[in-house]
Amino acid sequence: MAAISSDNRGLRLVMRYTVLTLIAIIFVFPLVFMVMSSFKPDLQLLRDTSSIRAFLPVGDISLNNYFDAFDRAPVGLFVFNSVLVTGLTVLFSLFLCSMAAFSFAFLEWKGRNILLSIVIATLIVPFETIAIPLLLMVSKLPWIGFEGFSVGWLNTYRVQIIPWIADGLTIFLFVQYFKDLPRDLIEASRVEGASWWQIYTKVVMPLSGPVLATAAILKFLVMYNQYLWPLIVVQEETYRPVMVGLGYFFQLNTAWGEIMAYLTIITVPVLAFYLVLQRAFIASIASTGVKG
């Protein structure tokens, strides 16, 4: 009887790993295809697409596509721009949206439910519908910087960052998470004389690792993949991000190998960011909780 039970467990384990392996293959193969193709000349790349060779480092393998990609476009500049814009937006967004959510979740003030409903309602408004009005607005906005007073935000980093800091989804995520935190903690802190700022910084945020990681990853993906907005507000190459830069590789005769090399390069920051936050995510879950 024990032997049968053990066999069943073994079979289940094999099946589970088989299914998980298949799922992993489905998700990993596009990445493998991208990386392998980035080492192949165009003609071989196109020929290999019809066979398993597309996923293998076989044939005429070299780094030429990478060198050519850097010759064709300022790849380093595009990656720097995207990482800078994305990084700053994520940081500001986590800070400001969590504060807004803290207010919605814990502070008592008139109209907060209505305002929260309005914030959440913005989730159903596609960005494309407000892109043009927003463009007209930012093109006329004043700014005081190191270079003095100026009008118009076009062709700057700030025009790619500031309009994206606050968003309904991030606030909503924080609100939902904060509402699930034990109220005892907040009330105990208030009884001990803590200010709201202290509760936000010393009590709530240290417990918010999971939502911070989730919100950061979602925001990072949205910002790193930005295309339409930088396309219409940035006309100078100096401020151009990676997704708009991808267009440099689509010429009359498309350079597929260079495209794969470029995509491989620009995927690195995304993977690195995810891997870093994955650890934070797990650590946050492990350390979250209220001891009785």
Partner: peptide, 16 residues
């Protein structure tokens, strides 16, 4: 500008 998005960039710039 990249050719694929050039016309959109011009139209957006004209609006702005």
């Amino acid at each position: 500008f990249p050719q694929g998005s050039y016309n959109d960039s011009v139209v957006a710039a004209a609006l702005a």
